[in-house]
Design a protein around this nucleic acid. Structure first.
Ligand code: ZN
Ligand code: ZN
Ligand code: ZN
Ligand code: ZN
Lengths: 348, 348
DNA sequence: TGTGGTCAAGGCTAAC
DNA sequence: GTTAGCCTTGACCACA
């Protein structure tokens, strides 16, 4: 069963609960709109515009610049919960940089991933892309690993070059693509051996927490050195990784805080990993360390996604192509914002 | 004796050595053609088109715009010979602005003064004016101080409004006007008391070096405040200035570098100035400081023509009418390019 | 096509 | 050395 046109959609990597009745009633806007454009999102001081992708003041802008370009490493002498305000912001450099990164500051100044899609009845004229929508959708296509020509066939209305499409059409396409990606993942989840033994809200929560890792894994599967740079090599010779391990991600690496029945989840997880190990041993009898290697690889991916905000801003992004930078950006933002994105789709 | 139709002509304020057989065999073209249209003439960066009259990059365009519109005054902390390249252009604002001005940038975006006229057998279709040819010729008429109606009478083929003429006719007229101006100046020179004592090539060289000052003086003589603005006043009560002093210009103010017999020229110069002083004293016995005042006035004119590039772009041009801006522009370009323009005419 | 305007990035420097 | 206010730069954009 395909998602109906009234099913929830993913847009800008944030799921909203409203049906897509009419794309024109949806508005893409900066998440910066969540607060006053005149107030620094880091310290609350008077902002002087967008700096490194985030509404911020001169002080935080300069601080981030110095920290990133000089590759400074700070330490917090307290509990890493220092408050940021105009008067207190200089008391802890560590917490200030962390807040900058959490707010989404990045050396490329990308704000595109801060888009949300929300129900909005405002003037339809105000649909506005500050980033080239073609670039936006191309990044999305890369991350979702969806073949463009296939998409074109599916959406007959898009049988024209991207650059020839109106922003509103691109917006509609983007929503459908996101919907498509989510739908495919849910279908996959429903075929998992332990699906029936889990509470839907549990799996929903786990998926939300690890979706960014799935995205990273999908991307790594492409093994395109042109896109991934040095990271391309880390999944060499483990082509079955996605098919076999991606469903175990939520149970393997995500902490189980917030679940009412942690013991039950832990049990499922152990059981599932055992099955995986048995499968590996039977399929590759000549490779006794294969399962351990796969686990190490998954750990690495997990660490990459955890550290993506650091990677993005220090060193790595400079050596790697733009697409990987975009990928890391997405990982960062899905990790930050997609804590529990899915509710309806699992019931379909 | 009038210049024959096969005599050398002046066109675009640059004298060329070919007879005007057929105006269609002559081609007006940008001096920008001397180099690649894709390379900034100031810094060598990638050019994005014509800006303020000159092939330049976005950076130099913006820099010139800010410098001019904000009336910025810069200083060079080195020897005013800073090199301009993509990487070094920001090291010295003074030298960058000077280069912009030297290359001919101007706030009106006139490229007209960069036209050369050269013998060319190319496609006659390629005659191209980027500046309104009527404006072009009107500027020229102003500078040469030639009465338009008189010109019309002389050239019967031009007995129609300028705007109704074809570009090729305007071009022909322009050539004839330039020819006329040069011819008149040569006639004047031949009547000078020391003409016979000078080598022709010497005087030719001196005239070439100071012709732009003569043009300025001629213009100032019109004393038309509508045209000259504030500068109108500086030649008040010195109406005999041109008749008396203009032939001394080359000897008074032009440096004598490059002449084989400098001592001879210096001697002539002194002698001539003595005669001038005596003449002034005899004609205006009640004004003992008149000669010194005249010298000061000439110095001022000299300075104006020297500083015309600054005047053109700062303050002055804003307060003065368009024609004076054009005049200053011509002075700048004749000063830069007409170092030795005349060869044949003196022999006529 | 060239223009003027915009605004984030980066440089500068006085004040800590 | 660090901070942050201020300035300059230049890529980009709407407009004519
Ligand atoms: Zn701040
Ligand atoms: Zn802290
Ligand atoms: Zn340049
Ligand atoms: Zn300099």
């Amino acid at each position: 069963p395909r998602a109906s046109p009234h099913s929830p959609i993913v847009s800008g990597f944030k799921i909203i609960a409203y049906p897509l009745k009419n794309v024109f009633t949806y508005l893409f806007y900066f998440s910066d709109d969540r607060s006053d454009r005149r107030v620094c999102l880091i310290c609350g001081d008077r902002a002087t515009g967008l700096h490194y992708g985030i509404t911020s003041c001169e002080g935080c802008k300069g601080f981030f610049k110095r920290s990133i370009f000089n590759k400074r490493v700070y330490k917090c002498i307290r509990d890493k919960k220092c408050t940021m305000s105009r008067k207190q912001r200089n008391r802890c450099q560590y917490c200030r940089l962390v807040k900058c990164l959490q707010m989404g500051m990045n050396r490329k100044g990308w704000s595109v991933f801060l888009y949300h899609c929300t129900h909005c009845t405002h003037n339809t004229q105000s649909i506005h892309f500050t980033v080239d929508p073609v670039q936006h959708i191309e990044m999305f296509l890369f991350v979702t690993s969806v073949d463009w020509s296939m998409i074109l066939l599916r959406f007959s209305s898009c049988s024209q070059p991207l650059c020839a499409m109106t922003p509103s059409k691109l917006l509609a396409l983007l929503c459908q693509l996101a919907d498509e990606l989510l739908f495919q993942q849910i279908m996959w989840i429903k075929q998992l051996p332990f699906f029936k033994e889990m509470l839907i809200r549990h799996y929903t929560c786990l998926l939300g927490a690890s979706w960014h890792e799935l995205v990273l894994l999908q991307a790594l599967m492409s093994r395109d050195c042109q896109v991934l740079g040095d990271l391309c090599g880390i999944i060499e010779n483990v082509t079955e990784l996605q098919l076999f391990f991606s469903p175990s991600f939520p149970m393997s690496f995500t902490d189980t805080k917030g679940f009412s029945n942690v013991a039950h989840l832990e049990q499922l997880k152990k059981c599932y990993l055992n099955v995986c190990q048995e499968y590996t041993a039977s399929q590759y009898p000549g490779q006794p360390t294969r399962f351990v290697d796969l686990m190490a690889c998954l750990t690495m991916i997990h660490n990459i996604s955890e550290l993506s905000n650091i990677c993005l801003n220090f060193g790595l992004a400079k050596k790697t192509p733009i697409c990987f930078g975009a990928l890391l950006c997405i990982i960062l933002w899905t990790a930050n914002q997609l804590r529990c994105p899915v509710t309806e789709p699992l019931c379909r």
